[in-house]
Design a binder for these strands. Structure first.
Lengths: 161, 161
DNA sequence: GACGATTTGGGCGACCTTCCCACAAAACCA
DNA sequence: TGGTTTTGTGGGAAGGTCGCCCAAATCGTC
C-alpha cells in the first residue's frame, strides 16, 4: 500500500460478454484493487471509460465533496443551492462506483454501455493510463492515437524533465 | 453505496406507469426517506422535477421565509408588495408535499405531470443531485448535459475551494 | 505435446422493477 | 340519492438483471 502505486501500463484486447462483463488483465487488475475491490468508472469521452481505484479517487473527490458539505453546514452556500445541485447532477452522470468481481472481472454498468459504444460480444481495448485504466472502443482508440501520438516525444520530454 | 449518505448521487432510468407512478431506486429512496416518508416535489424547469426530503426542505424554506417576514416587519419591503405577492404565488404552485409509498414508489401529482412532460408509460431519468433527487424527461436531460457539462471542472473548483 | 494460467461462458439464486389485479375513494351522471 | 365510472393506492408475482461460483475453452510456455 505504497503512496505511489505502480504506474499502470499495457494495452490488451478483451471481448465484452453478452452480459457486458469483461475481465481485466491481472497486470492492471492487481494494482488497481490493491487497496480494495471498489473502483470508480467515469465517462471520459464517447468511446472511452476510465477506471480508478476508489481509494485514490475518493481521496481526491472526498476532499472536494467534504468541503462542499462543510460549507453547506456552515451556511456559506446559502443562495448557491442551484450550483450545488448542478454539481451533484453532473457528478451523477459522469461517474459511478463499481466493484470488481473475482479475477478482476468488471461489469460495465447500465448507462455507461452506450457511452462506451461497444455492443455485447464486441471488442474492447484495455489500456493502462498511468494513474488509471481506460476502456476504449477500438475505432475511438485508433483515432485518439492518430491525433495524439505525434505529441508523444514532446510530452515525454516535458514530463521527464 | 457512496460514502456520502447526505450527498445523493447516481443516475437511473425508470418508466412511468399508466397511473403516473414510478419507483425510486433504493440507493436514492433510502437516504431521502431516512427522516420520514414525507417529501416535497418542486418544479425546476420544463422537463425536470426535484424531490426533497421534507425535513431538509422545511429547513431551507423556513430560513428564507423567516428572512422575508423579518424584512416585512422591519418595514423594509414597503412598496414591494407586488413582489412579495408574486413570491407567495410562486411558492404555492412550485412545490407540493407528497408521500412515498412502499418500495419507494412515488406518484407524480396532478399539475406536475405536464411540467415533467413525460406521458404515461414513458421513460424518466432519476438523478441524484447532491441535495435532492431530480426527475428528468430524457431529451431535456440530454440537452441540459450538453449545455452544462463543459463547466463541470470550473464549477467543481469553484465550490470546493 | 502437456501443463498451468487466464479468459470466457453458463447456471443458479437473490434482488429489483414493472405489470397486473383488487380494492377504496372520489367524481360524475341520471 | 343511488349507481356507475374514473382515479388513487396497495400488494402479488412474473420476468429481467446482477453477483457469485464453477466449468470449459483458449493461450502461452516449457
Amino acid at each position: 500500500m505504497s503512496a505511489h502505486p505502480e504506474f499502470l501500463l499495457g494495452e490488451f484486447s478483451r471481448t465484452l460478454d453478452e452480459r457486458y462483463r469483461l475481465s481485466l488483465p491481472p497486470e492492471l487488475a492487481e494494482p488497481l484493487t490493491a487497496e480494495g475491490l471498489d473502483c470508480i468508472v467515469a465517462k471520459e469521452q464517447l468511446g472511452c471509460l476510465s477506471l480508478w481505484s476508489a481509494a485514490h479517487w475518493q481521496r481526491r473527490l472526498d476532499e472536494g465533496v467534504e468541503l462542499v458539505k462543510g460549507k453547506m453546514r456552515a451556511g456559506r452556500l446559502e443562495g448557491r443551492w442551484e450550483e450545488v445541485q448542478l454539481l451533484g447532477r453532473l457528478l451523477s452522470t459522469r461517474q459511478r462506483p463499481v466493484q470488481l468481481a473475482g479475477r478482476g472481472r468488471l461489469v460495465v454498468p447500465e448507462g455507461f454501455r452506450e457511452f462506451l459504444a461497444v455492443e455485447a460480444g464486441g471488442e474492447v481495448l484495455v489500456v493502462g493510463a498511468g494513474v488509471c485504466v481506460e476502456l476504449w472502443q477500438p475505432s475511438a482508440w485508433q483515432s485518439h492515437l492518430a491525433a495524439r501520438m505525434p505529441e508523444f516525444r514532446a510530452l515525454f520530454d516535458r514530463l521527464a524533465n
